[in-house]
Amino acid sequence: MKCAAKIEVSLKSGHINSEGETTVCLLKELGYFVEKVDVSKVYTVIFQVSSMAEAKIKAEEMSERLFANPAKDNYAISVVEVVDQ
């Protein structure tokens, strides 16, 4: 079966969110009085697996080995089956 794993990587609290801070400044320039912008990255990984349980395990491994550094990143995973039209 084909699945899509959405892996969202965000900064742990206390780390500098430079992209978010720059975006806050720009939004203020544009007239929006925002307090904070949190920025995260979403990786959507499409791959073949034999079960949804396997998909979750693989996505977890990918997150730990590549997408997130535990010293600064949190990550969240959601997995859905992909049905080709």
Partner: peptide, 27 residues
């Protein structure tokens, strides 16, 4: 650091980093 070779407290087999070199402060 990202390879896990530094600091490498648990030796060379380790695959997860134990530290990070991240965004400068000040940016």
């Amino acid at each position: 650091i990202e390879y896990g070779l530094l600091p490498g407290f648990e030796g060379i087999g380790q695959q997860q980093p134990q530290a990070v070199l991240t965004t400068n402060n000040p940016q």
